[in-house]
Every structure is written in C-alpha cells, then in structure tokens.
C-alpha cells in the first residue's frame, strides 16, 4: 500500500471537488474493495476522500412512486428495507446472495456498483493486465478463464463485473444519480452506466474524474414475481458462475438480466420479448454474440438452464 492522505468531506459537491482537485484522489465508502486493492497496489490513490459523512444514507420515496437509495445505504440495510423486500424482491435476493453478512454491513450502494473485477490475473501484479496497466496485454486470454466473461468482452479484456446487486438493478431499470465538482448533477440509466471494455478496459463506467454517485433510483414497482438465482461452485460466499435476475408475470412474460457473464449486467431487451417462448429462445437472443473461451463455454448453457429453472419456479 502506498502512503496516502485522507479527508472526510462534508458535502457531496465538496467531496467531488476534493477528488477532482487531487491528481491521485479517490472516494472511499465502505472500503471493502478499495482497501484490498490498495494493499496489493492495484489501486494507488494518494488522497482518499471519505464520503461517509455526506448524509446520503437514506432510502426515500420518489415523486414517481419509486425509491431513491442514498449511495451510503449499506447493502445490508438496502436488502432489509421493507419497501424493497415488498416491491423489489429481486434486489433483496441479489444482495443477500453476495459476499457475506459482515461485508454487506460495510459495503455501500455506490461502492458495490464500482467494485472491480475478480479476474485472478487482475489481482496478480506480476501478470499482464490491460485493465490494471493499460497496454500491458491480457494474461487471462489463453489462461485460466473459467470464471471470466462470455459476452461483451473484447480482445483486450474478458473480465466480468462481479456485482450481484447491479444485475438486479439492471432488470429493474434503475438509474444512477451523480454530482460533479461544479455541483452539476445527472442521472444515468443503469444500462448505460458500465462500459464494455473495447480497447480501454480500464475505463469501466461513464463517471468523470471526481464525479460522485449520490444515489440510485428505482422506478415505480414493476409487480410480477421476482427471482435471483445465483449459481456458483459452493453454496455461499462465492462470486457467480452465472446468475439470473428475473421479474416474471403469470403469463410467462417478463424481463431478465444475467450476471457472471459479461463486463456489465447483461440484459438484451430483444431477448426479454421472447420470454414466453422459453429459456432457450431467450438465451439464443441474449447470447447471440457470445464469444466464450473453451473453459467457460459452459456458461452459455448454464445461463439458459438457470433461466429455465427460474421459469419453472414461476410456473410452479
């Protein structure tokens, strides 16, 4: 870990300004991802701006009938909120399928969306990694890629985004609200928030330097039955091989997003339209452009079968 300075910002705009004003500035929320990365010197901020005093820790109802989730709402609090459990069950289920109780107590909403990939080569600074060190190459391609992405990847990077929460947010059509150093705010649909790697896998989202996530908004409840099925090699405390977040109606229509397969929550609206034709039709559309490695080709089959399991549960 490199030495760094530390401050606690008092207002969102001041926090944004503090990060924008420091060349090596970075926000820290729960620290559950950032600190690990700093210990390994994968992240080397020289100045940390702690956002925990910003008062962004409430869940409020919006004028549109949805919810506004402050960025500092912990994963535990979000999953436990009665309104979320009632109207956005997929979100609660996704969150509690992730990490561990202790981690979820610390992990925040914004931090969760910005957690970095779990590609093992990204974590080993002896290995080439375009995401960690732009232009150095990608050791994962041709290596141990069983956990990595099958779609949306590029020749520069095949990593996945590991968040469970984000998959549920994608199926719910959430939006990310931000503020920058000048105090300007914007709202970015979750589907446009994370970027595909292309030639610049180190650029993972649309945030500008110093731009602070203030909240995540949920549109008004969708109804339907909510599912989050996360498949992994052990029963708990592991990242997804594949996960399926789905909201299904009684007639079988609905929407679905896939986790564990791509650099961002994977949802293809054209595939949603096929829900009533069954899992195979949906998967064929959603994964039409899949480019798996020989080690992770099973994920395409698994995605289809997991969606089928969810559909079967919906019928039962």
């Amino acid at each position: 870990m490199k030495a760094f300075t530390y401050e606690r910002a008092k207002t969102p705009a001041a926090a944004a300004a503090a990060v924008a004003g420091h060349k090596g500035g970075k926000f820290i929320a729960g620290g559950t991802n950032l600190l690990d990365l700093m210990k390994l010197e994968i992240e080397t901020p020289t100045h940390l701006v702690d956002v925990q005093d910003l008062g962004l820790d409430k869940i409020e109802e919006t004028a549109e009938g949805g919810l506004r989730i402050g960025t500092l709402v912990s994963n535990t609090a979000l999953a436990a909120d009665a309104r979320v459990r009632r109207d956005y069950g997929v979100l609660t289920r996704a969150i509690v399928a992730g990490a561990s109780g202790q981690l979820r107590n610390k992990a925040t909403t914004g931090g969760n969306l910005l957690q970095r990939t779990r590609c093992p080569y990204f974590y080993d600074t002896n290995q080439a990694c375009n995401k960690r060190k732009p232009g150095s190459g990608c050791a994962a391609i041709g290596g141990f890629s069983r956990q990595l992405g099958v779609i949306g990847t590029s020749d520069a990077c095949i990593a996945t985004h590991p968040s469970d929460m984000a998959i549920a947010l994608r199926v719910l059509d959430a939006a990310v609200e931000t503020v920058d150093a000048s105090g300007a705010t914007r709202s970015v649909p979750i589907g446009e928030f994370h970027r595909l790697p292309g030639d610049t896998p180190h650029v993972e989202n649309v945030l500008q330097r110093g731009e602070l996530i203030t909240s995540v908004t949920l549109p008004k409840p969708l109804g339907g039955r909510h599912f989050y099925h996360k498949v992994r090699d052990r029963a708990s405390y592991a990242f997804a091989l594949v996960s399926v977040a789905a909201v299904l109606n009684e007639d079988g229509s609905g929407r679905v997003a896939f986790g564990g397969v791509a650099p961002k929550p994977w949802r293809v609206e054209a595939a949603d339209a096929k829900m009533r034709s069954g899992a195979s039709a949906v998967a064929r559309t959603a994964f039409a452009d899949a480019r798996p490695t020989h080690e992770n080709a099973f994920k395409v089959t698994l995605a289809e079968r997991t969606l089928a399991a969810v559909m079967q549960e919906n019928r039962a």
Binding site: R118, R234, S236
Partner: peptide, 15 residues
C-alpha cells in the same frame, strides 16, 4: 492462478 481464498474455494457452512 487462484492463489487466494476467493479463488481457491473450500466448503462453507452452507455446503
């Protein structure tokens, strides 16, 4: 490659 306890999985209680 999987040289930590996130990558080298051992059973958890739920298993």
């Amino acid at each position: 490659v999987n040289h930590d306890l996130a990558g080298y999985e051992v059973p958890v209680h739920a298993d």
